[in-house]
């Protein structure tokens, strides 16, 4: 079982300044998309609807912008490190759960978490509270038990 789950966690530095500046940019992104074209900056919705012929252009452009910046960061040698842990099967299962869950729930951390909370949507408040609580329990269980 030890191989299946994450090993004991390494601490990460508390970085409130970077977190706040990054958060402000994400909020600005969501505000701009709504003010300019009246669309929600929800990543799962944008990916999920990418095959819908209507409105494909802005969705493709958004995803292009989203991935071109990390590409630029790599080219300039300022890319942040990604510490991903988990066996291939666990990574695959986690991905399926995130995909199915956000499709069923109609949103993820961006659509429900940032946009939904910002417009005081009761659906989004319920969804965000649920996935936050469940994720905390999952982390406590996997890190404590295994």
């Amino acid at each position: 079982m030890h191989q299946l789950f994450l090993p004991a966690p390494a601490p990460t530095a508390f970085t409130p300044g970077y977190a706040l500046v990054g958060g402000l940019m994400i909020g600005l992104s969501a505000a701009l998309l709504w003010l300019s074209i009246g669309r929600i900056a929800g990543i799962s919705g944008i990916i999920g609807n990418i095959f819908a012929p209507a409105e494909r252009n802005w969705r493709l452009a958004f995803l292009a912008g989203l991935v071109v910046m990390p590409l630029a960061a790599r080219l300039f040698g300022i890319a942040p490190t990604v510490h991903l842990q988990g066996s291939p099967s666990l990574l695959l299962a986690g991905g399926v759960l995130v995909g199915v869950g956000s499709a069923l729930g109609g949103g993820c951390t961006s659509g429900h978490g940032i946009c939904g909370l910002s417009r005081f949507s009761t659906r989004s408040i319920a969804a965000t509270g649920t996935f936050m609580a469940v994720a905390v329990i999952v982390v406590l269980l996997t890190r404590a038990v295994f």
């Binding site: 299962a93 956000s102 729930g105 329990i137």
Partner: peptide, 16 residues
């Protein structure tokens, strides 16, 4: 949906 999403997010630490 939010519950399943929370399980996957808590297992790996990545969302879309």
């Amino acid at each position: 949906g939010a519950g399943l999403f929370g399980i996957g997010w808590g297992l790996i630490g990545l969302c879309p």
